Computed example of a mutant assay.
Amino acid sequence: MNHLTLYTTLGCHLCEQLEALLAQLHRGAYRLEKVEISESEELMARYGVRIPVLTDAAGEELDMGFEPPRLAAWLEARGWLDSAAWQRLQSGESTEDQEEQVSRIAPARPGGRRYLG
């Protein structure tokens, strides 16, 4: 099982997108640890304008992983890319699936806002 860390903050819609894409494109099992950056001045200085940042167990970072090609390339370099899912996403077949993933990861709250718990 792969251990990944997501540097995030409350209400980060780009983080939600990355999580949904990761759930869709990652081949095999993984464990995602979310780190709230607002609770640390050091983390805010390092990641404040860069979130979401995804890191692997070796500490290799991915900025802007909410962009499908970037996440796919990062996963592929590690041998973790579900190639069939990536092909479906590129062909537009899985847009609805991705929206469902976002809804499961971060359910909508009153006023249409999403909350990362």
Rank of each mutant, 00 (worst) to 15 (best):
Q87I: 05
G59I: 08
L10N: 01
R113F: 13
Y30H: 13
A29D: 14
Q24E: 15
D63H: 08
W74D: 05
S94E: 01
L81P: 05
M44C: 06
P107E: 02
V53D: 06
T8E: 11
A57T: 13
L6T: 09
L6K: 10
L43I: 04
P68K: 04
L25V: 14
G65V: 13
G117Y: 00
R50Y: 09
P68N: 05
L54C: 14
G112Y: 05
L18W: 06
Q17C: 10
L22V: 08
Q98G: 13
G59P: 02
A45M: 04
S94M: 00
H26F: 13
E67G: 02
P107F: 01
Q90K: 12
H3D: 15
E93N: 00
V49R: 03
A85V: 04
A20D: 08
C12E: 03
Q24T: 14
L116T: 01
A29R: 13
L71D: 10
L22A: 06
Q101D: 13
W74N: 05
A57Y: 10
M1R: 09
R46Y: 02
E67H: 11
D63W: 03
S94H: 03
W74A: 05
W74F: 14
R78Q: 05
Q24D: 12
R70F: 13
V102Y: 07
W74E: 07
R88D: 10
P52R: 10
A106G: 00
Q98K: 14
L43E: 03
W86P: 01
L43R: 10
M64D: 10
F66K: 08
V49M: 08
L75E: 07
Y30T: 07
E60Y: 02
E100H: 11
E93M: 02
E96H: 13
L14E: 00
A84M: 10
S83L: 07
E99G: 04
G48S: 11
E60D: 14
L81E: 02
R104L: 12
Q17I: 09
T8M: 11
A77M: 01
G28K: 08
E16V: 15
H3F: 14
T9A: 12
H3T: 15
D97C: 05
M44Y: 03
